[in-house]
Simulated assay, not measured.
Amino acid sequence: MAVSGHRRRPVVALYERIADAVHDGTYPPGSTLPSEPKLAAELGVSRPALREALLLLQEDGLLSVRRGVGRTVNDRPPRRGFEQVQPLEELIGAGTPLRVRALVRTVEEPTDFTTQHLLAPARAELRFWESVLTGEGAAAALSHEWAAPDELLDRVHPEFARALRAVETKSRTGAARGHGAGTDGGTDQQGSAAVSMLSVLLGASRETALGAHSGITATLLGRRRGEQLRRPADTPAVLVTQVVRVGDTPVMAAKHMLPTGAPALPVLQSH
């Protein structure tokens, strides 16, 4: 399924509610969903909206229709696309990865978001990367990415910690040489694109198993994000949040803002 426009927002929210109920075990694999009238009443939605969401869930391999039985949850529901831990620039690039343009590469204290999702102590220092993803000359998404504190990464994923330091060292070296790859730069003199934090994490995780959880909500860009993406502040957008873990320990968290008209975002991908 692709999330791309304002008119799909209610269905996306309903899709996510049912998908969450499947993934949290409310409707386990092999179980049969309640009838449409009963499910619509339980969720407090109209039957036409429910039917559209159910059809999308069938398209994405989460549900099947069995004659005489009804809609059942597949034995192996596919994971969410973002839970497959794929960089956004590749996931929405439709075969041609988007370019990553660095806006900010810095260290900051925890926000409410990172305190909640990275379990960061109040006075911790977290790497924060802000990037714009572009394709065909237009801004397609705005990404905010945070890494867990160095002392935690050194313990649970030292390869990721070393890779982050190497990228930042290269960026500082490029800035010192006038390549424009400093804390507010985007590309070097040769035009090489910056990288996302998630792509750095994946490159450092060949021997480390990763898990992830994501959420999708509908929102508006707002003034600052609208300026960064060169869109009006009241432009409808999809906000994706993502947390990547090693075992039970979160090592990276991100927010991705995709405005209306951006390349389609696959919410689910089959194996």
Results as ranks from 00 to 15, higher is better:
204 A>M: 14
250 P>A: 05
50 L>G: 02
251 V>K: 04
254 A>E: 13
33 L>M: 06
54 L>K: 01
1 M>V: 15
96 T>Y: 02
112 D>E: 13
203 G>D: 12
100 V>Q: 05
68 G>L: 00
269 Q>F: 07
236 P>A: 08
206 R>V: 11
88 L>D: 04
46 S>H: 05
231 R>P: 07
74 N>L: 01
17 R>D: 14
113 F>I: 06
12 V>P: 01
105 R>G: 01
38 K>P: 00
26 T>R: 15
17 R>K: 15
111 T>N: 05
212 A>Q: 11
68 G>F: 00
174 G>P: 13
99 R>N: 05
244 V>C: 12
249 T>W: 03
223 R>W: 07
172 R>P: 04
174 G>W: 09
102 A>Q: 13
114 T>M: 08
17 R>Y: 10
26 T>W: 02
57 L>F: 05
96 T>L: 06
43 L>V: 05
58 Q>S: 11
168 E>F: 07
12 V>E: 04
126 L>M: 04
4 S>L: 06
231 R>T: 09
68 G>W: 02
183 T>D: 04
201 L>V: 15
120 A>G: 03
257 M>V: 15
140 A>I: 00
218 A>D: 13
160 F>D: 08
176 A>W: 10
261 G>C: 09
80 R>N: 02
75 D>G: 05
44 G>R: 04
131 S>E: 13
34 P>T: 14
148 A>G: 08
130 E>Q: 11
121 P>A: 01
89 E>H: 15
18 I>D: 03
57 L>Y: 04
98 L>G: 07
268 L>D: 02
160 F>C: 09
30 G>I: 10
175 A>E: 15
90 E>S: 09
242 Q>K: 15
202 L>T: 10
171 S>M: 12
96 T>M: 07
180 G>D: 08
73 V>T: 03
252 M>E: 09
241 T>D: 13
181 A>P: 04
64 S>Q: 10
